[in-house]
């Protein structure tokens, strides 16, 4: 329950901080931190425009996408306190429930019959296919390290003792951050601020969404960032008491948003056909973590 509140709170400023960081890095003042939320509220108040090509799939897809992200959020714990949903293997559920949201966002893009959106859909399907093994290997290694198979138990049993385990945690944080970037279609895989449809992935899929539906999709994106931020925080939190953990959580989220903003400011987007290779690299890094976990748990003689 605690995690739910904290993630929602973090989601209100996460994207704002990214945008602010980017503005300052490029020498502008930039909009306020809560501007994204204001945008969404404005969208919620608007009417909608639907393409004549679309069907009920297009209408219901944003709802399902948002619901999937929302339910995925319920799985995330906060330090010692469980998420609303917690059971053995809940991270499998987490990945698959996000999967159904993705399924619907892909088919809703195809529903418009636009060539751009078809392109985005094809890319999204391919990238998410590549990103998933990294997540599962990573969680598998953490399960191996701790002997548990649910988010909350894994994170509360994760003691960072030796230097190897610190290295592992840093690498894991890197992988989670990159998965967050892929899931949210940010740099270096996709540029949310690009002006050309041909080079978009996620943005092009939602070209035809408007009003309430677009608001839902954007909110889901903000939540997704905060969810992955919370997972990364959990990697390090261990058994810290709440009075320190909660401020630390916000510091961590701010820091992550700052990092994302810096990456976006100082890195160019990869060439489209190199993206797949980059994502495979992620799986390799998580395999490294797996071997590190083998080392730590003493399976290698």
């Amino acid at each position: 329950m605690l995690s739910l509140l904290l993630i929602i709170l973090a989601a209100t400023f996460f994207t704002g901080i990214i945008i602010r960081t980017k503005s300052i890095a490029s020498g502008r003042k930039g909009p306020g931190v809560f501007q994204p939320i204001k945008d969404v509220v404005r969208l919620f108040k608007k009417g909608s425009v639907f393409s004549e090509t679309t069907s009920f799939v297009f209408q219901i897809a944003p709802t399902i996408y948002f619901a999937s992200v929302f339910v995925a959020m319920l799985v995330i714990p906060f330090g010692q306190s469980k998420g609303l949903i917690s059971f053995n293997g809940d991270f499998i559920f987490f990945a698959y429930i996000l999967g159904i949201g993705k399924f619907f966002s892909i088919i809703s893009a195809m529903d418009t019959g636009s060539s751009f959106e078809g392109m985005g859909a094809s890319r999204e399907a391919l990238y998410s296919m590549f990103a998933e093994p990294a997540f599962f290997i990573l969680m598998g290694s953490l399960a191996l390290l701790t002997g548990y198979t649910s988010f909350q138990e894994i994170f509360s049993a994760l003691h960072l003792g030796s230097s190897i385990s610190y290295a592992l945690a840093v690498m894991a944080a890197f992988v989670f951050l990159m998965i967050a970037m892929i899931e949210n279609s940010r740099m270096p895989l996709d540029d949310p601020k690009t002006h050309l449809e041909l080079t978009m992935v996620h943005e092009v899929m939602i070209l035809d969404n408007s009003g309430f539906d677009l608001g839902l999709i954007l909110t889901a994106g903000y939540l997704k960032f905060a969810i992955y931020g919370a997972i990364i925080f959990n990697l390090f939190s261990g058994t810290i008491a709440y009075e320190y953990a909660i401020p630390l959580f916000f510091v961590m989220q701010l820091f992550l948003a700052f990092v994302v903003g810096m990456i976006e400011s100082f890195m160019a987007r990869f060439r489209m056909n190199h993206n797949a290779q980059f994502i495979v690299v992620l799986s390799s890094v998580s395999l490294l973590i797996f071997f590190g976990a083998l080392l730590v748990s003493g399976k290698f003689i």
Binding site: M110, D111, F136
Partner: peptide
């Protein structure tokens, strides 16, 4: 595990493609 995950991801490509191309669009 990797194979199962890959199967899941590939199945998603396969069936979003099939459903999208057959039933959606114009």
């Amino acid at each position: 595990i990797m194979a199962l995950v890959l199967i899941g991801g590939l199945a998603m490509i396969c069936f979003t493609k099939t459903f999208g191309v057959v039933f959606l669009g114009s």
